[in-house]
Design a protein around this nucleic acid. Structure first.
Lengths: 140, 140
DNA sequence: CGGATATTTGGTATGTATGCAAACATGTTG
DNA sequence: CAACATGTTTGCATACATACCAAATATCCG
């Protein structure tokens, strides 16, 4: 259980973790490269970066798995995405547009801000992009 | 009058243009470096980048000035900042926190999204960060 | 003019992201 | 089980954004 500021990872790395959480279990680096439209060598390298900082375990030639730390972060990232998407949808953006828009900037929004926004919304449980789980929300 | 998507410039370059708009007229690269806390050589280089793409005119050793294009973009950037700050303030963030938060991610929010949000808010004229001018808002 | 100051240029570094080609591992099949 | 096809990683190279330092250059002012 470490403090999450929300800015630990770059946009791309956030995408990696969110994908790993979605897939669960042992994921092939090739699956990642297919999903994120990058060369397999790119996903391998990025995964190794994430592994260096303890977000994932990588068994070469076998697959990748979130660590406990990685899972915590990934869950926050998904919630952040969902809360921000819900917020934008309140201002007239369609679900798809909100989702697309948020994907571009979510990596730069702090956990503190998300907790505040989440509280102001009354800790909603459903967004336009999926469910919102509040286990990581400090203001819950 | 060119189409603005909102993603033309990197976060730092957005800061440069917003500062130039604030200062107005001919601005010294040294003033920029002081304001943005970077080495003078850094601001010179960045200004040259902006100049290559027509956002500013740079007269070496004299100063920098927004072009018409640069001014249009800068005005949009300021409005974007203000609208996003206002939005966050509606979700419980203080003016300062909203402003800080927005500064981190504003460069990745599209003009389309801003126009939509602005419309949903009823085209407000005042934000927590300053006035909002709607000349560039497509939905006004 | 000429020194003090301001500004720019050239070189270098870091972090992030990317691809290609070659090396390497795996697993499958004959 | 050997050999080949396939999947994965490594090494090398590039690009972009940002940044600093030191050296060169221009401007300003006494």
């Amino acid at each position: 259980m470490q403090e999450i500021t929300g800015m630990e990872l770059s946009p791309k790395k956030v995408e990696y973790l969110k994908f790993l959480l979605r897939k669960g279990d042992l994921v092939k680096t090739t699956d990642i490269s297919t999903e994120l439209n990058v060369d397999p060598s790119t996903s391998t390298k990025t995964i190794n970066d994430l592994s260096e900082y303890g977000y994932v375990d990588h068994i070469p030639y076998r697959g990748v798995r979130l660590t406990e730390k990685g899972r915590e972060f990934a869950e926050f990232f998904v919630n952040r995405h969902n809360i921000l998407s819900l917020m934008l949808s309140h201002y007239g953006l369609s679900s798809e547009d909100a989702c697309t828009e948020v994907s571009r900037f979510e990596a730069f929004v702090s956990k503190d801000a998300i907790d505040t926004i989440c509280g102001a919304m009354g800790h909603p449980t459903v967004s336009v992009c999926g469910k919102i789980i509040h286990s990581s929300c400090n203001l819950h």
